[in-house]
């Protein structure tokens, strides 16, 4: 019994770590610029495939695989800003929220399809994965899960330091909290938006490598984590980073538990019920400040 409980716990923590990484990328973009990036899933997938190409096709070391994932994710984020977001920001502010969703949906489809055309639809093995199991008494810890949790913890620490301690991070938070005031202090908000999308893109890239190392590489790879990340963002309150991380771990553990108790197919629906319950109780999420957005 205990070992089953433990393995559910390990599975929950691992997926929680993955979701947290996906959620932070989404939440960061939403919090600072009011943009829901529907192309986040495709950026995740892009990262996974970039690492695959770097290590398998080009035969580069593991480190270069990670670098390629970060680089391509960051590039996708930057291009998204330059080609789409910058132009939509010039239009009417009131329609930005929905327009940018629709536009990124289009970009997401196009990107996913480009990957499909380039690599084909058959699943590929992510080379950046480790085999083996660490046995600790009754505990069976696959090395892959340990690697994922470690990578995510490191990434979270990096993001926390970046946002909390650096001048750039402070400018990002200032823009999220009061855009006009940030501008008065000399912050060029357009540059902040660009930085945020690049940052979120590189997070998506790493997340893609991690997700594909658990399963396999396939073009729709990012869709499932993104949808769950959305749910976690909503439960936490969009734009709240610590809340999003907490929600990611909490809901992932819940999902793992329900999948064990009631069967795999009830995992996602149960998350949905949690979301609906939370939203009826608190329409802007558990930790969300009651935003008054154009009301």
């Amino acid at each position: 019994m205990l070992d089953i409980l433990m393995s559910v716990l390990v599975a929950g923590l691992t997926t929680g770590a993955l979701y947290a990484l996906a959620t932070v990328g989404l939440s960061l973009v939403w919090g600072s610029m009011g943009m829901l990036n529907m192309a986040h899933a495709a950026m995740l997938t892009l990262g996974g495939y970039a690492a695959f190409t770097a290590t398998t096709t080009l035969g580069l070391p593991v480190f270069a695989g990670f670098a390629a994932a970060i680089l391509f994710g960051a590039m996708a984020g930057g291009l998204l800003y330059v080609l789409i977001v910058r132009n939509l920001l010039k239009n009417d502010k009131a329609t930005f929220e929905s327009n940018v969703m629709i536009a990124t949906v289009g970009i997401g489809i196009a990107l996913e399809n480009t990957i499909l055309l380039t690599y084909g639809g058959q699943p590929l093995k992510q080379p950046l994965s480790v085999d083996g199991i660490l046995k600790l008494g009754p505990l069976n810890l696959p090395y892959q899960n340990i690697v994922i949790i470690l990578v995510v913890v490191v990434m979270m620490a990096v993001i926390a330091l970046l946002l909390g301690k650096t001048r750039m991070g402070r400018a990002i938070r200032a823009t999220a909290q009061n855009r006009d005031a940030a501008q008065l202090m000399g912050v060029a908000v357009n540059r902040v938006y660009f930085q945020v999308l690049v940052l979120s893109g590189s997070l998506a890239g790493i997340c893609g490598v991690m997700v594909s190392s658990m399963t396999q590489l396939s073009p729709p790879l990012g869709n499932d984590p993104m949808l769950k990340a959305f749910i976690m963002c909503v439960v936490a309150g969009l734009g709240n980073l610590p809340g999003a991380v907490a929600a990611a771990f909490g809901l992932a553990l819940l999902e793992a538990f329900i999948q064990y108790v009631a069967g795999a197919r009830w995992g996602f629906p149960s998350l949905l019920f949690v979301v609906i319950a939370v939203l009826i109780w608190r329409p802007s999420g558990l930790f969300g400040r009651t935003q008054i957005r154009r009301m």
């Binding site: 829901l36 929220e97 949808l227 969009l238 197919r265 949905l272 939203l279």
Partner: peptide, 28 residues
Amino acid sequence: ACLRLTGVYVALLTLAIAQTMYLLIVTD
């Protein structure tokens, strides 16, 4: 379910509902 929500929250919740319906049918 969407009544008290605005903007993107509605989009996300409805997307999740549609996806749940799909998953429940496919995995039946």
